[in-house]
């Protein structure tokens, strides 16, 4: 099991940041490095304010030559199943990669907490990744090592990195919005 954690501080109230992360991914995502598209494929808003979302991420990282033929472009991405709390204080998520989905268990929680005396937010993204060795056994021997490492990198590095950039991009949008609304 590999655990990962990412902490991002921004100068906007946590509720606004959480709303942006929940609702603006289609807008923010494609501006991130190595992200092609983010599409919300399912959304269920509950009466109490909670919401369930499924976002489909398509990414385009440069792949090592060893993975040519093993991983194709249409396998690069994941479904992000998210359960948002009604108060927007937390979001439980589960990643379902297009590649080796049956071998991978990746889930976690994102918390949006008040910081800077209410002027900002501390956003914590943490999760854990399990790769099932049995599932890897179905791959040719020469591909197991690289495939496992590629998946681990994809999930434990690219996703937290993108998450940080997402939050920062949302923060920029919020800043732009604030400036627009405060303009005379």
């Amino acid at each position: 099991m590999k655990a990962f954690r990412c902490l991002v501080g921004v100068r906007h109230p946590p509720e606004r940041v959480a709303l942006g992360v929940r609702d603006w991914m289609a807008e923010v995502g494609p501006n991130l490095e190595n992200v092609d598209t983010v599409i919300t494929t399912a959304r269920l808003d509950r009466p109490d304010g909670a919401a369930s979302l499924v976002n489909e991420w398509r990414v385009t990282p440069a792949l090592p030559a060893a993975l040519d033929g093993v991983v194709t472009r249409d396998m690069l991405g994941w479904l992000d199943h998210a359960e948002w709390a009604a108060d927007l204080g937390a979001c439980k998520w589960r990643i379902e990669p297009f590649f080796m989905a049956e071998a991978i268990d990746c889930k976690g929680v994102t918390r949006f907490e008040s910081a800077m005396g209410g002027r900002g937010a501390r956003v914590t993204f943490e999760g854990q990744l399990d790769i099932d060795p049995a599932a890897l056994a179905t791959l040719p021997v020469v591909w197991r090592g690289p495939a496992s490492i590629a998946v681990e990198m994809l999930i434990s590095t690219l996703i937290p990195r993108n998450f940080r950039k997402c939050v920062e991009a949302v923060s920029v949008l919020l800043e732009t919005e604030r400036q627009l609304t405060s303009a005379p």
Binding site: V8, G9, R11, A115, M116, G117, R119, G120, R164
Partner: peptide, 18 residues
Amino acid sequence: LENRDVFVAADLLGYRYE
């Protein structure tokens, strides 16, 4: 390093704004 913006660093280093 990440999180070295003045506001964020101050928060993470323990400033409570009160």
